[in-house]
Simulated assay, not measured.
Amino acid sequence: MKRMLVSLVYSACLLLWDVLATYTHMGALDPHAIAAQSYAQSRHNARPPLRTLNPTKTDSECRSRPLDLVFIIDSSRSVRPGEFEKVKIFLADMVDTLDVGAEGTRVAVVNYASTVKIEFLLKDHFNKLDLKKAISRVKPLAAGTMTGLAIKAAMTETFTEESGARPKARKMSKVAIIVTDGRPQDSVEEVSAAARGSGIEIYAVGVARADMNSLKQMASIPLEEHVVYVETYGVIEKLTSKFRQTLCGVDPCAMGHDCQHICINSNASYYCKCRVGYILNADKRTCWLKQVKVEVIQDPCKCEARLAFQKQTQAALQQLTTKNIHSLNTIEALESMAGWG
């Protein structure tokens, strides 16, 4: 037993010696150095892993309205390689939120700097995996910021039937999302107006040094909904939730309403209706049972028998109306209890 205890003490001393040797190497025994190493290690352990674009990973999708959607992305010299990767992750996240398909949402990407490169067209990819693989292959062009030229290329080369855009007769929504971090080196006002005039809805996303006035010149109205600004590329991924709400088919009635009887979806809003036999009150929310109006026709001859008959008829109608109100109120209460109201 004594020999075993000595062996354990000896092993512990060896372990302690190894630890001290590690920290004494090149003067690391300095308490300040040890504290610095400990702090750096704790920061490293707490830091979340960097996200990379994984084409095979698919998040839950929303029920989006079919779109012809074109991303116009700035890859000028001011956008660092790591920042450009974050833009690509944002695009891939956006693809995940959409109902992609030949009859659903079609996606194209226009890459620009001093020149413009159509990375792929609306007709090229009809599933999420292929789209995200194509996005992962996009490379920065790294010179200049010809935003106006990029908008023109999108309008004339991607939003066309030859490139996969649906015919005007189908009244398909056409949306362009521009992402830029600088000031355009060419004019954007006229070409953006022409694009909007052709039926393209434009969202302008500005990052860091983006020129706010230029963003407003590019975007559709209302500007408060179509101009978006984030301070860094590090948070651009958070915009996915905003565009999810904007581009997805939101069901306002399912999200909650204050209609007493029936909620009817109307674009991004709703209105209330009443069940048969009720009328909508002035507050446009609650309903009131229609009253049976009994009209008594005065008899000019004042015949007692006819007057008596009219009074009996009026009393009977009033009694039926009262019973009807009671029955309908009972039905409404039962429906409310059952969750049908």
Rank of each mutant, 00 (worst) to 15 (best):
L307Q: 15
L5T: 05
C303H: 14
M94S: 03
I236K: 01
A204H: 00
S163A: 15
Q217E: 08
F71T: 04
S75T: 11
I221V: 13
T286I: 01
Q310G: 12
D299P: 01
N267H: 02
N281W: 08
N265T: 09
G144P: 08
I135Q: 05
A193F: 01
C272M: 09
R77Q: 15
A46M: 12
R183W: 10
P81G: 09
H257T: 02
R285E: 05
Q319K: 11
A21T: 03
L122M: 02
A210Q: 01
L131Y: 05
E189Q: 06
Y229G: 06
N281D: 13
A169H: 05
H125V: 01
T180P: 06
K117E: 14
A254C: 06
T313A: 07
P49V: 10
Y229F: 14
G249V: 06
P81M: 10
R47A: 13
L29T: 04
S336V: 14
L29Q: 12
N267A: 14
V116E: 12
A35S: 04
G182V: 05
D99V: 08
M218N: 08
E237I: 02
M337Q: 14
S187Y: 03
E335D: 13
K311Y: 04
Q298W: 11
A142N: 14
S327N: 15
S78D: 08
K133S: 13
A102Y: 07
I297L: 14
G339L: 10
P167D: 05
Y270S: 00
K139Y: 15
G27V: 00
I89H: 09
R106D: 05
A268I: 09
T58Q: 14
M218S: 02
G234E: 05
V228L: 15
T58G: 10
M218I: 15
I297T: 13
A150Y: 11
A153M: 08
R244A: 03
N111K: 01
D59T: 13
A28M: 11
E85P: 02
T330W: 13
S64R: 00
T322R: 10
